[in-house]
């Protein structure tokens, strides 16, 4: 006789609440670290923004809102906008290039894989500054890239490759691409590729399977890649300083200028606070969204 199953095993019960309520003690050391080295300095920077500047490049006594008012400088919106779109564009291109790169690194034959990962990381062995100046040399009007392009007739003699937002974008992509590739590679290597087979078996094309199964499968790594590219981009200052020039200034340059040339610390602090808030706001929104969907994903177990 064939009968239906009456019971099926349920996943194990969650840990007892008593244990969970003491979990926070374990996080104390990292919480202390975060408090001393991130939260406190940030709050100090925020508070400096409400102080007057003194004549010697320091911070004067008392409180003032003058600095915040000076943020209304008509040059700032353009710079903020440029900072945002350069960072977004860099992030987008890094993802667009990083996802296929990570995928192919993970799918490469095992004897090739370590060499390829090595090649991704090897630029880090040279100083960051040296590499940026190398780019300046490459893109220089008398540099090799320019000469080759002119010889091929791909660029007219009046065009400049250096000192424009395009050059900043190129060098930022160059700089941050490995940071996008590595987390995506790590996730792609752990991905269960039988899921791709299952998707194509169910009628999905390779591209559809990649989109509907692979990308959701590595979404945490994509999120990580966005963070580690976008946030440093927002704050970058050396790259626009070296290859950007005045027409490609970013907020980072303004902060440096206020701190080092104008010796106006409160103004620099106000700009920094603005940048920090700009970075934190999307993070907090994303974190909130994740928490809400996370709660939905763990529904109450029903008796069967």
């Amino acid at each position: 006789m064939k009968t239906a199953p009456s019971s099926v095993r349920e996943p194990p019960a969650r840990r007892p609440d008593r244990w969970r309520s003491h979990e926070w003690i374990v996080t104390l050391p990292s919480l202390g670290w975060l408090l001393a080295l991130f939260i406190a300095p940030t709050l100090i920077v925020f508070s400096i923004a409400f102080k007057p500047a003194d004549l010697f490049g320091g911070v004067g006594p008392g409180w003032t809102l003058d600095t915040l008012r000076s943020l209304g400088n008509p040059n700032y919106p353009a710079i903020v906008w440029r900072t945002l779109w350069l960072s977004l564009a860099t992030t987008a291109v890094c993802l667009l290039v990083g996802i296929p790169c990570g995928y192919y690194l993970a799918r490469a034959p095992i004897r090739w894989r370590n060499t390829l990962v090595m090649l991704t990381v090897v630029p880090f062995w040279t100083s960051f500054l040296v590499r940026i100046f190398a780019w300046k040399h490459l893109l220089h009007p008398e540099g090799p890239v320019r000469r080759v392009l002119t010889a091929l007739g791909l660029c007219d003699s009046a065009a400049t490759l250096l000192y424009n937002p395009g050059a900043v974008l190129l060098v930022m992509i160059y700089t941050y691409l490995p940071f996008a590739i590595l987390p995506i590679y790590a996730a792609a290597e752990k991905f269960d590729y039988q899921l791709i087979e299952a998707a194509t078996d169910l009628g999905a094309t390779r591209w559809r399977a990649f989109r509907s199964v692979f990308l959701p499968g590595i979404r945490v790594a994509i999120f990580t890649a966005v963070l580690v590219v976008f946030i440093p981009c927002l704050g970058s200052f050396v790259i626009p300083d070296v290859v950007g020039g005045p027409s490609a200034e970013m907020i980072g340059n303004k902060i440096a200028q206020r701190a080092f040339s104008d010796r106006n610390l409160p103004h620099a602090a106000a700009l920094s606070a603005l940048l920090t808030l700009a970075v934190l706001a999307p993070l907090i929104v994303a974190w909130g969204a994740r928490n809400r969907s996370g709660r939905r994903a763990v529904p109450v177990q029903e008796a069967s």
Binding site: D192, E197, A198, A199, T200, D201, L202, G203, V213
Partner: peptide, 16 residues
């Protein structure tokens, strides 16, 4: 595979 009128039940199930 996606054009074949056959479907597979995998050993590891391969559920998404």
């Amino acid at each position: 595979p996606h054009q074949r009128p056959v479907n597979t039940v995998f050993q590891s199930y391969a559920l998404f």
